[in-house]
Computed example of a mutant assay.
Amino acid sequence: MPTKLTREQTEYLVLQVQRYFHAEHGEELGNLETEELIAFFSRELGPFYYNQGVQDSRKLLLERMNALEDELYVLEQPVMKKR
C-alpha cells in the first residue's frame, strides 16, 4: 500500500535529490523528473523499508511484553500452603 507524501515532503525530497545529483554528479534535474525518480524509488524501495519497520516494531513489542510479564510475576502475592 503506497503512502502518499504531503506536498511539503515532496518539495523537500525534490530539493534534496536535486542537490545530491548536482553535488555528486554535476547534473541538474528538473522538478518533474525528480518527482518521477522519487516515485520510482518509493515504489521499489518503500516496501523493504516498511517491512523492516514492521519487523522492528514486532521485536520491540515482544521485548516490552516480556518485560511486562516479568513485572506481573513480581506483583504476585505469596500463598501459604496448608499442611
Rank of each mutant, 00 (worst) to 15 (best):
M1I: 02
T3S: 12
T3H: 14
K4T: 07
L5M: 04
T6N: 10
R7P: 05
R7F: 12
R7N: 08
E8M: 14
Q9R: 11
Q9Y: 06
Q9N: 11
Q9I: 10
T10H: 02
T10P: 08
T10W: 07
T10N: 12
E11S: 12
Y12V: 00
L13R: 03
V14M: 12
V14W: 00
L15M: 04
Q16F: 01
Q18E: 04
Q18A: 02
Q18P: 01
R19A: 11
R19N: 12
Y20P: 00
Y20H: 06
H22E: 14
H22D: 14
A23D: 14
E24Q: 10
E24I: 07
E27P: 10
E27D: 13
L29P: 00
L29W: 08
L29F: 05
L29A: 04
G30P: 03
N31I: 02
L32P: 04
L32V: 01
E33Q: 14
E33C: 03
E33D: 10
T34P: 01
T34N: 00
E35F: 13
E35I: 08
E36G: 13
I38P: 00
A39T: 04
A39H: 08
F40V: 09
F41L: 15
S42A: 10
E44V: 06
E44C: 04
L45K: 12
L45R: 15
G46C: 05
G46T: 06
P47D: 04
P47E: 08
P47R: 10
P47W: 07
F48Y: 12
Y49S: 15
Y50A: 10
N51E: 15
Q52Y: 06
Q52A: 08
G53W: 02
V54K: 11
V54Y: 11
D56Q: 06
S57L: 15
S57A: 15
R58S: 15
R58L: 14
K59W: 10
K59L: 10
L60T: 12
L60F: 15
L60K: 15
L61H: 12
L62K: 14
L62V: 07
E63P: 06
R64D: 07
R64S: 13
M65S: 09
M65K: 12
N66F: 05
N66P: 00
A67V: 05
L68K: 06
L68Q: 09
L68I: 06
L72D: 04
Y73V: 02
V74M: 13
E76K: 04
P78E: 14
P78F: 06
P78N: 06
P78V: 07
M80L: 06
K81E: 13
K81D: 13
K81A: 10
K82E: 15
R83Y: 09
